[in-house]
Amino acid sequence: MANQLLDLWHKLSGAPGGKWLFSKIMGWKVPYTGSVRPRVMELAPGHAKARLHDRRGVRNHLRSIHALAQMNIAEFVTGLAMTAQLPKDARAIITGLSIEYTKKARGTLTASCQCPELGAITDDRELIIESQLHDEAGDLVSRAKATWRIGPRR
Score class of each variant (00 low, 15 high):
residue 1 M to Q: 06
residue 4 Q to M: 06
residue 4 Q to R: 15
residue 6 L to N: 07
residue 12 L to K: 11
residue 13 S to F: 05
residue 17 G to H: 04
residue 19 K to W: 10
residue 21 L to V: 13
residue 23 S to F: 11
residue 25 I to C: 08
residue 26 M to D: 06
residue 26 M to C: 06
residue 27 G to R: 04
residue 27 G to S: 11
residue 28 W to V: 11
residue 30 V to M: 14
residue 30 V to H: 08
residue 30 V to K: 02
residue 31 P to I: 10
residue 31 P to D: 07
residue 31 P to N: 06
residue 36 V to C: 11
residue 37 R to N: 13
residue 37 R to H: 12
residue 38 P to E: 10
residue 39 R to F: 12
residue 40 V to L: 13
residue 42 E to C: 09
residue 42 E to N: 09
residue 42 E to H: 14
residue 42 E to R: 00
residue 43 L to N: 03
residue 45 P to L: 05
residue 45 P to M: 02
residue 45 P to W: 04
residue 46 G to Q: 03
residue 47 H to R: 15
residue 48 A to F: 00
residue 48 A to K: 04
residue 49 K to H: 01
residue 50 A to K: 04
residue 50 A to F: 00
residue 50 A to D: 11
residue 50 A to R: 10
residue 51 R to F: 08
residue 51 R to G: 02
residue 53 H to S: 00
residue 53 H to G: 03
residue 54 D to W: 09
residue 54 D to E: 12
residue 54 D to Q: 08
residue 54 D to S: 09
residue 55 R to T: 08
residue 56 R to P: 09
residue 57 G to F: 13
residue 57 G to S: 09
residue 59 R to N: 07
residue 59 R to A: 00
residue 59 R to S: 00
residue 59 R to H: 09
residue 60 N to W: 04
residue 60 N to Y: 12
residue 61 H to A: 07
residue 62 L to K: 03
residue 62 L to F: 14
residue 63 R to F: 12
residue 65 I to S: 03
residue 67 A to Q: 11
residue 67 A to S: 08
residue 68 L to K: 01
residue 68 L to I: 15
residue 71 M to R: 00
residue 71 M to I: 09
residue 72 N to V: 13
residue 73 I to K: 05
residue 74 A to H: 14
residue 77 V to W: 09
residue 79 G to E: 00
residue 80 L to M: 04
residue 80 L to F: 03
residue 81 A to I: 14
residue 84 A to D: 02
residue 84 A to I: 03
residue 86 L to E: 02
residue 86 L to A: 06
residue 87 P to M: 07
residue 91 R to T: 13
residue 93 I to Y: 12
residue 94 I to R: 02
residue 94 I to D: 02
residue 94 I to P: 05
residue 95 T to Y: 00
residue 95 T to S: 08
residue 96 G to Y: 06
residue 97 L to A: 13
residue 97 L to Y: 11
residue 97 L to F: 15
residue 98 S to D: 15
residue 99 I to T: 15
residue 99 I to S: 11
residue 101 Y to Q: 08
residue 101 Y to R: 03
residue 101 Y to C: 02
residue 102 T to F: 10
residue 102 T to L: 15
residue 104 K to I: 04
residue 104 K to Y: 03
residue 105 A to H: 10
residue 105 A to N: 04
residue 105 A to I: 05
residue 107 G to C: 12
residue 107 G to W: 13
residue 108 T to V: 13
residue 108 T to L: 06
residue 108 T to D: 05
residue 110 T to A: 05
residue 111 A to Q: 01
residue 111 A to D: 03
residue 113 C to S: 05
residue 114 Q to D: 15
residue 114 Q to E: 10
residue 115 C to Q: 00
residue 115 C to K: 07
residue 115 C to L: 02
residue 116 P to C: 00
residue 117 E to M: 01
residue 117 E to D: 08
residue 117 E to V: 04
residue 117 E to Y: 08
residue 119 G to S: 01
residue 119 G to Q: 05
residue 121 I to K: 12
residue 123 D to I: 09
residue 125 R to H: 04
residue 127 L to H: 02
residue 127 L to W: 01
residue 128 I to R: 11
residue 129 I to C: 01
residue 129 I to K: 01
residue 129 I to F: 03
residue 130 E to S: 10
residue 131 S to C: 03
residue 131 S to R: 00
residue 131 S to V: 00
residue 131 S to W: 00
residue 131 S to E: 14
residue 133 L to N: 06
residue 137 A to D: 15
residue 137 A to R: 14
residue 139 D to M: 07
residue 140 L to M: 13
residue 145 K to W: 01
residue 149 R to W: 13
residue 152 P to Q: 12
residue 152 P to I: 05
residue 153 R to S: 10
